[in-house]
Amino acid sequence: MDDTPPQAALDHECRVLTSYLLRQAPSSYVLAKYRDAHAADALPASPAGPFDRLLARLAISRPSLLKLVDAYASVFFRTGLLRKKMVLLLAILEVSPRLHACFDSPDPGGTVGLLARIAVRSSAFLLRLLLAVVVLGPLQLAFALRSTLAAGPGRRDG
């Protein structure tokens, strides 16, 4: 069975993630490389669990939730599917014409202003993480419970 998402879905995914990361649209080159990377099986082959897959689906299909899911994944799914896809995209973006500049230059403003902005953005991350734990934490527990029940009482791992 071919698990590779169809081209249109990958293009949508690439647009959503690029816009989230850089607040810019991907170039046609970036879209093509993102598709090509999936065709080349560039993502490391580790089985994504059902909740991991759900997080990725949720983030792509509802961009408004992407910030929340990213915050959650940064602590609880650091090696999960969504982060892998985003890291692959970051790697493509950082060497792509024009867009590589988004990694290079600091924001304008003096040292104090920048420190303040870093503090504000980091605090905002913590708040999102807190919210994500409230919203997604129980969902993850439910998934874990369901898979335990599905495994049955007599089964043991290993």
């Binding site: 940064s74 985003m86 970051l90 230059s105 600091p106 905002a124 993480l129």
Partner: peptide, 12 residues
């Protein structure tokens, strides 16, 4: 951090 905040912090 999440990746968007990480990118912001990194760039600066």
């Amino acid at each position: 951090l999440d990746l968007r905040t990480s990118l912001f912090v990194f760039r600066n």
